[in-house]
C-alpha cells in the first residue's frame, strides 16, 4: 500500500511543463474577463475554474467513476455514517455507569468519544456534500446502539470493553475493505494515466486515518481487560453478528 501511495506522490513533478502551465493561464484569463464586469455575485464563478469544471485544462484527467463505483461509494459512506452514529451513541450511554464505577477511565472514554464524534462529523459532511441519503434505519440504529452501550456499561468495565473490542474489530475490517477497494480504483486510474481526483484522494486519507483510530480503540479495549469479560465468547459473538447485520442492512436501505 505504501509503495502505491509514494509513487502517486512522486508522479506530480514529472509532468511536462506545458501541462502544468495551462490551468494557471486559464485562471488568469478568467480573472481578467471577470474584472470587466465585476460584481459581488461573480466571486463564486471566478472560483469554479479551480474546482475542475474544465477537465480538459487539468494536467491529468480525473477518473470518471462507473455507475457501480458510485453506488459503492454511496453505500459505503452511508454505512460509515451509520457506524459512527452508533459508535458515538455507544460511548455516550456507556459513559455514566462506567465512569461512576471506574473514575480513572474518564480521560480514556472522553478521548475515544471525541474521536468518534469527529468521525461522525466527517461523514455527515460527506453525505450532505455528495447528496447521499442517510440510512432509513437511522432511528433504529440510534435506539439499538444506545441500548447496547447502556447495557454493556451496566454489566461492568470488562463487558463494556468487550463491546468496544467487538465493534471496533468489525468496523476496522469494514474500513479496510473500503481502503482496499479505493486502492484498486487508484491503481486502475494510474494505469489509464488518470488520477483519482483530490476528493477521492482526501477520502482515502480520511478513511485510513479513521480506521487507524478505530483500531487504536480496539487496543485500548484489550488493555482494559476486554478478554476478561464474562461470558466473553457469547458477548463478542452476538455483538459482532449484530454489527455485520447492521452493515448489511445499511448498505441496502
Amino acid at each position: 500500500m505504501a509503495s502505491i501511495a509514494s509513487r502517486t506522490a512522486l508522479a506530480g513533478p514529472a509532468l511536462p511543463l506545458k501541462a502544468r502551465i495551462i490551468p494557471l493561464a486559464f485562471q488568469l484569463q478568467a480573472r481578467s474577463r471577470n474584472s470587466n464586469g465585476a460584481k459581488r455575485t461573480l466571486t463564486f464563478s471566478a472560483a469554479t475554474p479551480h474546482d475542475g469544471v474544465h477537465p480538459e485544462h487539468s494536467s491529468r484527467p480525473k477518473k470518471v467513476l462507473t455507475k457501480a463505483q458510485k453506488q459503492f461509494l454511496d453505500s459505503a459512506l452511508r454505512v460509515n455514517q451509520a457506524g459512527e452514529l452508533a459508535a458515538t451513541r455507544i460511548y455516550t450511554s456507556q459513559n455514566p455507569p462506567i465512569i461512576k464505577a471506574h473514575p480513572h477511565l474518564r480521560p480514556l472514554m472522553k478521548h475515544m468519544y471525541d474521536q468518534e464524534a469527529g468521525h461522525f462529523k466527517t461523514f455527515n459532511g460527506l453525505l450532505a456534500k455528495h447528496r447521499i441519503r442517510p440510512t432509513a434505519m437511522y432511528p433504529v440504529w440510534y435506539a439499538a446502539s444506545s441500548l447496547l452501550g447502556w447495557s454493556t456499561g451496566v454489566m461492568g468495565r470488562e463487558a463494556a470493553m468487550a463491546c468496544t473490542e467487538a465493534v471496533e474489530t468489525e468496523i476496522g475490517d469494514h474500513y479496510n475493505s473500503q481502503v482496499r477497494e479505493l486502492l484498486v480504483w487508484e491503481k486502475e486510474a494510474k494505469d489509464n494515466g488518470e488520477t483519482l481526483g483530490p476528493e477521492l484522494e482526501a477520502l482515502l486519507v480520511d478513511i485510513r486515518r479513521i480506521r487507524d483510530e478505530e483500531l487504536e480503540h480496539l487496543d485500548h479495549a484489550v488493555e482494559q481487560d476486554a478478554k476478561e469479560a464474562n461470558p466473553y465468547e457469547l458477548l463478542t459473538g452476538v455483538i459482532r453478528a449484530g454489527c455485520r447485520g447492521a452493515i448489511w442492512v445499511s448498505e441496502r436501505v
Partner: peptide, 11 residues
C-alpha cells in the same frame, strides 16, 4: 451554475 461539490458534478 449553483455552487456544487466537484465530486458530485464530475462523477
Amino acid at each position: 451554475r449553483a455552487p456544487r461539490a466537484a465530486y458530485h458534478e464530475q462523477h
